[in-house]
């Protein structure tokens, strides 16, 4: 195990959770963070799917990294990601149809997620498969927990539910409480992400720009 998780590997795996978070620090994958965080459930599923796909495509690109012609490397990365996403989606349709219906558009959205291209280009092209796998895992989880945090706030305040279970009791509504419709709009995701970045930077002084 010590060899598998050397100091560098540990940094590669755990860094993206906070100090090198794809959303809060690298500011990648914002587009999907806006689209899928109105409810907690799709946010969790999206986080999980992205984690798996980033990790796998990182490994594949890392294995191919010495053969890929420099001028078409982005195209090669895109083809690998698109092929992987399509295969996963086909398997879901055959063996987990309900999940595939629930994911519907999100599966396709994974292809366009900037984190994928970002990690392939910045990490997998220059590192060994195992480290690339850890990097993909770390970034996927770093992305997933931010999505979950934003979706938690948006679903709770916007719909009064969590994972579609009613949290805010009916008596609150009878007393005049109203769901915050703004929370369901994409701009609120941006504002919440900005709040997270604010808190994160306040806590990590070394991340602040001069």
């Amino acid at each position: 195990m010590s060899k598998l998780l050397s100091a560098k590997s540990k940094q590669v795996l755990l860094g993206p959770l906070s100090k090198n978070n794809p959303i809060m620090v690298q500011v990648l994958g914002i587009c999907s963070a806006l689209a899928v965080t109105a409810k907690l459930e799709p946010a969790l599923v999206m986080g999980l799917s992205v984690t798996i796909i980033v990790a796998l495509s990182n490994v594949i690109i890392s294995l191919l990294r010495n053969t890929i012609p420099n001028r078409i490397r982005i195209i090669v990365q895109l083809v690998v990601v698109a092929a992987l996403v399509t295969v996963v989606s086909e398997f879901l349709k055959a063996f987990a149809y309900d999940v595939s219906v629930q994911l519907s558009v999100y599966i396709g959205l994974i292809i366009t997620n900037c984190i994928l291209m970002g990690r392939l280009e910045a990490f997998a092209m220059g590192n060994k498969p195992w480290e690339s796998f850890l990097d993909g895992l770390g970034n996927g989880i770093g992305y997933a927990w931010i999505l979950a945090a934003v979706a938690f706030v948006r679903e709770l305040l916007g719909s009064g539910t969590l994972l579609n279970y009613r949290i805010i009791p009916q008596s609150f509504y009878d007393a005049g409480y109203v769901n915050n419709g703004m929370m369901m709009m994409p701009p609120m995701a941006l504002i919440l992400v900005a709040c997270l970045i604010w808190i994160h930077r306040a806590a990590n002084k070394d991340l602040q720009e001069k």
Partner: peptide, 12 residues
Amino acid sequence: NTNKNSYTIIYA
């Protein structure tokens, strides 16, 4: 040499 035109085309 992975930068040659022929290599790139065949690879693609």
